[in-house]
Design a binder for these strands. Structure first.
Lengths: 234, 234
DNA sequence: TTGGATTTGTGCGTATGTATA
DNA sequence: CTATACATACGCACAAATCCA
């Protein structure tokens, strides 16, 4: 693994274990460089990772400080794998309501930026946490990029299949967040009432090489949907 | 201004003017270095800025590409100043419902991480876009850090007052996003019905030196609240 | 209050690794 | 397989913000 990632992981471990909790502050860059045997740039790349993750913040002339931890049971919206990762200390499972292969119609082709008629997989899934309905997912995958998708995969994690089995590298995603009143069908799936609130995230997901491979619309149970985002003052 | 920021701004301008729209791709790093007379590190810092803003993405071995533009009329959740900035092509205004100075009670002191009794400003504002109610803001400012706040400021932009007049540097913010049913009072302010959906953002805002100075709870009209976030696969 | 020491931020140069074309 | 282009890593110098005597 890249050196700066190793250092980032080590620092993350140390922070998690409370090594710096008295000070809420890391040693100086010079000390960390010596400790981890890396150059200044490499160390700073490692710190960058943790700053992006909102674990640390830096103050010029002063030091590198540890942030207050994010509230538990919230999904970090700037991260791609929300569900299983964020709730790994809880029981989570998925239920595939529908999975089929079909040719892209006009709407789907626009969302997946592909030709009309391109074969795509459509997945309709429910997500549960501790057996409580958490979200409904309507998802399309471009079959040109994801050549196969089956129920056994969708019951587990599609993303870990894509990364570990297909050996593709997921890069980034656009997410649009809005609020809607639930349709009758969605409300029954979520065990809520029609016209109850829901938090809707539409996301477009790309490989690291910029290829668009997935578009999803995820409808969240308003009672459980709590998201976190870090904002910067550009 | 810092060199890498100048380069970032120049590139942003060029992109906005469609200079690269045929290719959707920037010249190589080597060419950009020569063009802007900067070192590789400086150029890469400039590109980093635009990648963070989801303007560009990089593909190792291939090039630097221009992203599809974000939908208009959405608020970038990873940016701190949402309202006036994102809707600067529209008429926006604020209406101060309440502005008072008071000592922090237990709840406020926890949210502002200060002692009970610390003087704080409380601001209750409505935000309008094209004269449509957009959001309700309940905001607390630590008076130790923000020594004065008046109605004439709150009618305008509190943040520009803090940065330009008080000369403080706003750094970063934590945002928690959730969905709630509207209370009777909030619904009337938003000209909606009681129990209608709303998107709620609780944010804690820090100066660049890590000082917590503001906590806000902002309740958005579900008909207009559209947010955007860029997610990375860490 | 000032000024020096400390600490992070910016910028330059160079070499090598790795993914893509 | 080779060339191209971005990614990582090293070292150095100076700027700017903060801290402290």
């Amino acid at each position: 693994m890249r050196k700066y990632r190793v250092v980032a992981d080590q620092l993350l471990d140390e922070i998690a274990q409370g090594k710096y909790k008295d000070e809420d502050r890391l040693p100086t860059e010079d000390k960390l460089m010596a400790e981890h045997n890396v150059s200044r740039n490499t160390l700073r790349s490692a710190i960058d990772v943790l700053v992006d993750k909102s674990i640390l913040y830096r103050v010029q002339g002063s030091g590198i400080y540890i942030r207050k931890p994010v509230y538990p049971d919230t999904i970090t919206i700037n991260s791609i794998r929300g569900f299983k990762e964020e709730f790994k200390n809880k029981e989570t499972h998925s239920e595939v309501i529908e999975l089929e292969q079909l040719p892209a119609d006009k709407e789907i082709s626009q969302k997946l930026q592909c030709e009309i008629g391109t074969p795509v997989y459509f997945v309709h899934r429910m997500r549960y946490i501790e057996n409580e309905p958490f979200s409904i997912e309507y998802s399309y995958f471009n079959k040109t990029i994801i050549p196969y998708l089956g129920r056994e995969i969708a019951n587990n994690s599609i993303y870990s299949y894509i990364e570990n089995d297909l050996n593709l590298s997921i890069g980034f995603a656009d997410k649009y967040i809005s609020v809607e009143k639930l349709s009758k069908m969605d409300s029954s799936h979520l065990q809520l009432k029609e016209a109850d609130p829901s938090l809707v995230i539409e996301e477009t997901v790309y490989l690291t090489n910029g290829t668009l491979f997935n578009h999803s619309r995820v409808i969240h149970n308003y009672k459980h949907a709590k998201f976190f985002a870090l904002a910067k003052n550009w």
